[in-house]
Protein backbone atom coordinates (compact mmCIF):
# COMPACT_ATOMS: atom_id res chain seq x y z
CA UNK A 1 0.00 0.00 0.00
CA UNK A 2 1.30 3.41 -0.83
CA UNK A 3 1.95 5.91 1.84
CA UNK A 4 0.02 9.14 1.65
CA UNK A 5 1.35 12.46 2.71
CA UNK A 6 0.03 15.97 3.30
CA UNK A 7 -2.83 17.41 1.25
CA UNK A 8 -1.89 18.13 -2.34
CA UNK A 9 -5.29 19.11 -3.73
CA UNK A 10 -7.69 21.22 -1.72
CA UNK A 11 -11.01 22.13 -3.28
CA UNK A 12 -13.25 24.36 -1.22
CA UNK A 13 -16.90 25.13 -1.92
CA UNK A 14 -16.42 24.92 -5.64
CA UNK A 15 -19.39 25.74 -7.83
CA UNK A 16 -19.33 25.45 -11.60
CA UNK A 17 -22.13 26.77 -13.73
CA UNK A 18 -22.16 26.70 -17.52
CA UNK A 19 -24.28 29.02 -19.57
CA UNK A 20 -25.81 27.70 -22.72
CA UNK A 21 -27.89 30.44 -24.25
CA UNK A 22 -30.31 31.63 -21.59
CA UNK A 23 -30.02 28.34 -19.76
CA UNK A 24 -27.80 27.85 -16.71
CA UNK A 25 -26.33 24.43 -16.23
CA UNK A 26 -25.32 23.85 -12.62
CA UNK A 27 -22.74 21.11 -12.77
CA UNK A 28 -20.92 21.39 -9.45
CA UNK A 29 -22.41 22.98 -6.38
CA UNK A 30 -20.37 23.86 -3.35
CA UNK A 31 -18.15 20.85 -3.70
CA UNK A 32 -15.30 20.01 -1.31
CA UNK A 33 -12.49 17.59 -2.01
CA UNK A 34 -9.01 17.00 -0.67
CA UNK A 35 -6.50 14.64 -2.15
CA UNK A 36 -3.36 13.72 -0.27
CA UNK A 37 0.02 13.44 -1.88
CA UNK A 38 0.61 9.88 -3.04
CA UNK A 39 -3.06 8.99 -3.37
CA UNK A 40 -4.58 7.17 -6.35
CA UNK A 41 -8.10 8.52 -6.41
CA UNK A 42 -10.88 7.13 -8.56
CA UNK A 43 -13.64 9.56 -9.48
CA UNK A 44 -16.88 7.89 -10.48
CA UNK A 45 -20.38 9.01 -11.31
CA UNK A 46 -23.05 8.86 -13.97
CA UNK A 47 -22.51 10.38 -17.38
CA UNK A 48 -22.92 14.13 -17.35
CA UNK A 49 -22.42 14.37 -13.59
CA UNK A 50 -19.41 16.67 -14.02
CA UNK A 51 -16.43 14.36 -13.59
CA UNK A 52 -14.51 15.82 -16.52
CA UNK A 53 -15.48 19.30 -15.39
CA UNK A 54 -14.01 18.68 -11.96
CA UNK A 55 -10.85 17.15 -13.43
CA UNK A 56 -10.41 20.17 -15.70
CA UNK A 57 -10.72 22.50 -12.69
CA UNK A 58 -7.98 20.57 -10.89
CA UNK A 59 -5.80 20.61 -14.02
CA UNK A 60 -6.16 24.33 -14.51
CA UNK A 61 -7.97 24.00 -17.83
CA UNK A 62 -11.00 25.78 -16.49
CA UNK A 63 -11.91 28.03 -13.59
CA UNK A 64 -14.58 27.57 -10.95
CA UNK A 65 -17.59 29.89 -10.90
CA UNK A 66 -17.15 30.11 -7.14
CA UNK A 67 -14.86 28.61 -4.51
CA UNK A 68 -11.15 27.91 -4.51
CA UNK A 69 -8.83 25.37 -6.08
CA UNK A 70 -5.57 25.04 -4.21
CA UNK A 71 -2.87 22.71 -5.43
CA UNK A 72 0.41 22.28 -3.59
CA UNK A 73 -0.51 25.39 -1.62
CA UNK A 74 -1.12 27.51 -4.72
CA UNK A 75 -4.48 29.11 -5.58
CA UNK A 76 -4.53 28.18 -9.26
CA UNK A 77 -7.94 29.75 -9.81
CA UNK A 78 -6.24 33.09 -9.30
CA UNK A 79 -3.42 32.62 -11.81
CA UNK A 80 -3.38 34.51 -15.10
CA UNK A 81 -3.78 32.51 -18.32
CA UNK A 82 -0.09 32.75 -18.95
CA UNK A 83 0.97 31.69 -15.47
CA UNK A 84 -1.59 28.93 -15.55
CA UNK A 85 -0.10 27.54 -18.77
CA UNK A 86 3.35 27.54 -17.21
CA UNK A 87 1.91 25.98 -14.06
CA UNK A 88 0.29 23.17 -16.06
CA UNK A 89 3.54 22.50 -17.90
CA UNK A 90 5.32 22.06 -14.57
CA UNK A 91 2.75 20.27 -12.44
CA UNK A 92 0.17 18.42 -14.48
CA UNK A 93 0.23 15.38 -16.73
CA UNK A 94 -2.98 14.67 -18.63
CA UNK A 95 -4.03 11.26 -19.92
CA UNK A 96 -7.03 11.27 -22.26
CA UNK A 97 -9.59 8.66 -23.14
CA UNK A 98 -8.75 8.85 -26.85
CA UNK A 99 -4.99 9.16 -26.28
CA UNK A 100 -4.83 12.40 -28.31
CA UNK A 101 -1.38 11.75 -29.72
CA UNK A 102 -0.07 13.83 -32.59
CA UNK A 103 -0.43 11.61 -35.64
CA UNK A 104 2.49 13.33 -37.38
CA UNK A 105 4.98 12.54 -34.62
CA UNK A 106 6.42 9.17 -33.69
CA UNK A 107 6.18 7.83 -30.14
CA UNK A 108 9.42 9.37 -28.99
CA UNK A 109 8.61 12.78 -30.45
CA UNK A 110 5.11 12.70 -28.96
CA UNK A 111 6.59 12.11 -25.53
CA UNK A 112 9.14 14.84 -26.16
CA UNK A 113 6.43 17.46 -26.83
CA UNK A 114 5.84 18.66 -23.23
CA UNK A 115 9.61 18.64 -22.70
CA UNK A 116 9.95 21.32 -25.38
CA UNK A 117 8.60 23.74 -22.80
CA UNK A 118 11.47 23.01 -20.41
CA UNK A 119 15.05 24.21 -20.53
CA UNK A 120 16.41 20.76 -21.27
CA UNK A 121 18.86 20.31 -24.10
CA UNK A 122 17.90 18.25 -27.10
CA UNK A 123 19.89 15.30 -25.81
CA UNK A 124 18.35 15.54 -22.36
CA UNK A 125 14.89 15.69 -23.89
CA UNK A 126 15.56 12.54 -25.87
CA UNK A 127 16.85 10.82 -22.74
CA UNK A 128 13.79 11.80 -20.73
CA UNK A 129 11.47 10.67 -23.51
CA UNK A 130 13.23 7.33 -23.87
CA UNK A 131 13.11 6.84 -20.13
CA UNK A 132 9.42 7.54 -19.95
CA UNK A 133 8.76 5.12 -22.79
CA UNK A 134 10.87 2.55 -20.98
CA UNK A 135 8.76 2.97 -17.84
CA UNK A 136 5.60 2.19 -19.84
CA UNK A 137 7.31 -0.75 -21.54
CA UNK A 138 7.56 0.66 -25.04
CA UNK A 139 11.33 0.89 -25.54
CA UNK A 140 10.94 -1.13 -28.69
CA UNK A 141 8.43 1.27 -30.22
CA UNK A 142 10.32 4.58 -30.07
CA UNK A 143 10.09 5.33 -33.78
CA UNK A 144 6.57 4.04 -34.34
CA UNK A 145 3.83 6.41 -35.39
CA UNK A 146 0.51 6.32 -33.49
CA UNK A 147 -1.41 4.73 -36.36
CA UNK A 148 0.92 1.72 -36.29
CA UNK A 149 0.32 1.13 -32.57
CA UNK A 150 -2.55 -0.71 -30.86
CA UNK A 151 -4.96 1.21 -28.65
CA UNK A 152 -3.24 -0.05 -25.51
CA UNK A 153 0.15 0.93 -26.86
CA UNK A 154 -1.10 4.38 -27.85
CA UNK A 155 -2.40 4.88 -24.32
CA UNK A 156 0.99 3.87 -22.95
CA UNK A 157 2.57 6.54 -25.13
CA UNK A 158 -0.05 8.92 -23.75
CA UNK A 159 0.98 8.01 -20.21
CA UNK A 160 4.67 8.31 -21.07
CA UNK A 161 3.96 11.80 -22.42
CA UNK A 162 2.10 12.68 -19.21
CA UNK A 163 4.92 11.55 -16.90
CA UNK A 164 7.86 12.76 -19.07
CA UNK A 165 8.11 16.06 -17.22
CA UNK A 166 7.75 14.33 -13.86
CA UNK A 167 4.59 16.28 -12.93
CA UNK A 168 3.18 16.66 -9.45
CA UNK A 169 -0.18 15.29 -10.41
CA UNK A 170 -1.40 12.82 -13.02
CA UNK A 171 -4.97 13.44 -14.25
CA UNK A 172 -6.58 10.64 -16.27
CA UNK A 173 -10.01 11.02 -17.87
CA UNK A 174 -11.34 7.51 -18.51
CA UNK A 175 -7.93 6.20 -19.55
CA UNK A 176 -9.32 2.72 -20.20
CA UNK A 177 -12.64 3.86 -21.65
CA UNK A 178 -11.67 3.00 -25.19
CA UNK A 179 -9.74 -0.21 -24.51
CA UNK A 180 -10.65 -3.88 -24.25
CA UNK A 181 -10.46 -5.51 -20.82
CA UNK A 182 -6.96 -6.95 -21.24
CA UNK A 183 -5.34 -3.73 -22.51
CA UNK A 184 -7.32 -1.79 -19.94
CA UNK A 185 -5.98 -3.98 -17.16
CA UNK A 186 -2.45 -3.43 -18.37
CA UNK A 187 -2.94 0.32 -18.30
CA UNK A 188 -4.40 0.14 -14.79
CA UNK A 189 -1.46 -1.96 -13.63
CA UNK A 190 0.85 0.62 -15.09
CA UNK A 191 -0.92 3.45 -13.26
CA UNK A 192 -0.88 1.46 -10.07
CA UNK A 193 2.85 0.86 -10.43
CA UNK A 194 3.47 4.56 -11.03
CA UNK A 195 1.50 5.32 -7.88
CA UNK A 196 3.16 2.70 -5.70
CA UNK A 197 6.73 2.74 -6.90
CA UNK A 198 7.18 6.34 -8.00
CA UNK A 199 4.77 7.86 -5.50
CA UNK A 200 2.78 9.62 -8.23
CA UNK A 201 -0.46 11.22 -7.12
CA UNK A 202 -3.15 10.17 -9.57
CA UNK A 203 -6.75 11.24 -10.06
CA UNK A 204 -8.61 8.99 -12.48
CA UNK A 205 -12.12 9.43 -13.83
CA UNK A 206 -13.76 6.11 -14.65
CA UNK A 207 -17.08 4.41 -15.19
CA UNK A 208 -15.64 1.01 -14.57
CA UNK A 209 -15.77 -0.55 -11.03
CA UNK A 210 -12.90 -2.80 -12.12
CA UNK A 211 -10.80 0.25 -12.63
CA UNK A 212 -11.80 2.00 -9.43
CA UNK A 213 -10.88 -1.16 -7.53
CA UNK A 214 -7.24 -0.47 -8.37
CA UNK A 215 -7.35 2.97 -6.76
CA UNK A 216 -6.52 3.69 -3.13
CA UNK A 217 -9.77 5.61 -2.72
CA UNK A 218 -12.97 6.13 -4.67
CA UNK A 219 -15.35 9.07 -4.58
CA UNK A 220 -18.70 9.37 -6.34
CA UNK A 221 -20.00 12.46 -7.97
CA UNK A 222 -23.73 12.94 -8.28
CA UNK A 223 -25.97 15.98 -8.52
CA UNK A 224 -23.00 18.28 -8.14
CA UNK A 225 -21.83 16.78 -4.88
CA UNK A 226 -19.38 14.12 -3.77
CA UNK A 227 -20.17 11.05 -1.71
CA UNK A 228 -17.33 8.97 -0.32
CA UNK A 229 -19.05 5.62 -0.56
CA UNK A 230 -21.82 5.69 -3.04
CA UNK A 231 -24.55 3.09 -2.95
CA UNK A 232 -24.38 1.24 -6.24
CA UNK A 233 -22.96 2.40 -9.53
Amino acid sequence: MSTTGPDLVRINHVTKTFHRGAEDIHVLSSLDLTVAKGEFLALMGPSGSGKSTLLNLIGGLDRPTEGSVEIGGERIDRLSERDLAAWRARHIGFVFQFYNLMPVLNAERNVELPLLLTNLSKRQRREHAENALKVVGLSHRLKHYPRTLSGGEQQRVGIARAIATDPTLLLCDEPTGDLDRKSGDEILTLLQTLNREQGKTIIMVTHDPHASARATRTVHLDKGQLAANAPTD
Binding site: E81, W87, F94, M102
Partner: peptide, 14 residues
Protein backbone atom coordinates in the same frame (compact mmCIF):
# COMPACT_ATOMS: atom_id res chain seq x y z
CA UNK B 1 -8.49 22.20 -33.09
CA UNK B 2 -8.27 19.12 -30.88
CA UNK B 3 -4.50 18.92 -31.19
CA UNK B 4 -4.22 22.57 -30.32
CA UNK B 5 -6.31 21.82 -27.24
CA UNK B 6 -3.88 19.06 -26.24
CA UNK B 7 -0.91 21.39 -26.68
CA UNK B 8 -2.59 23.95 -24.46
CA UNK B 9 -3.39 21.30 -21.84
CA UNK B 10 0.33 20.46 -21.82
CA UNK B 11 1.14 24.06 -21.03
CA UNK B 12 1.77 25.59 -24.47
CA UNK B 13 0.61 29.20 -24.23
CA UNK B 14 -1.83 30.68 -26.74
Amino acid sequence: TGEIGVLKAMGFTG
